[in-house]
Nucleic acid binder design. Structure first.
Length: 150
DNA sequence: TAGGCCATCTGGTCCT
DNA sequence: AGGACCAGATGGCCTA
């Protein structure tokens, strides 16, 4: 039999081992030991259940992440590792898009301002029209996102 | 059948 | 003290 390693039983003094004296005065015999084992087993089962719930929560979070991350081919669901890698790549791509868009807007404003004041005859001021990917080099460059290979 | 992925159990550690 | 978190072990399922 294993020694009384655990000190969580109220009847046991810390550090006592099987066969030594309990607080109640009884010896730590089969009954005491079996109660302790029972408590240990109960706590283990409770811990297992908590761990299961925790992992289920984690998996739910992974499923939610899979839904918002690009999936290359719908046939096979991304593994957890792939999901994290894809999320990382996706966030970086979106960050790049934002940065480029801001820079693009700044350039556009500056050009419009420059035209209004200095070169009106040669300018084609920005009208807010959408540009297609075929004619807009920025759009082509920004949406060429590919997942990292690993 | 080997390898990848996953769920679960378990013991240890940290935190409240 | 008890719960959360973590990492290692193990076994099942699936696919190439």
């Amino acid at each position: 039999m294993k020694p009384c390693k655990l000190n969580n039983n109220n009847n046991m003094e810390p550090g006592l081992e099987a066969g030594s004296q309990c607080r109640s005065g009884t010896t730590c015999t089969a009954k005491c030991g079996s109660e302790r084992l029972e408590n240990t087993a109960k706590r283990r089962l409770a811990a297992n259940a908590r761990e299961r719930r925790r992992m289920q929560g984690l998996n739910t979070a992974f499923d939610r992440l899979r839904k918002v991350v690009p999936q290359w081919g719908q046939d096979k669901k991304l593994s957890k590792y792939e999901t994290l890698q894809m999320a990382l790549s996706y966030i970086m791509a979106l960050t790049r898009i934002l940065a480029e868009a801001e820079r693009y807007n700044a350039e556009k404003d500056w050009i419009n301002f420059h035209c209004e004041h200095f070169h009106q005859e040669n300018c084609h001021p920005y009208t807010g029209q959408k540009m297609t990917a075929e004619v807009d080099p920025y759009a082509q460059r920004l949406f060429s996102f590919q997942p990292d290979s690993y």
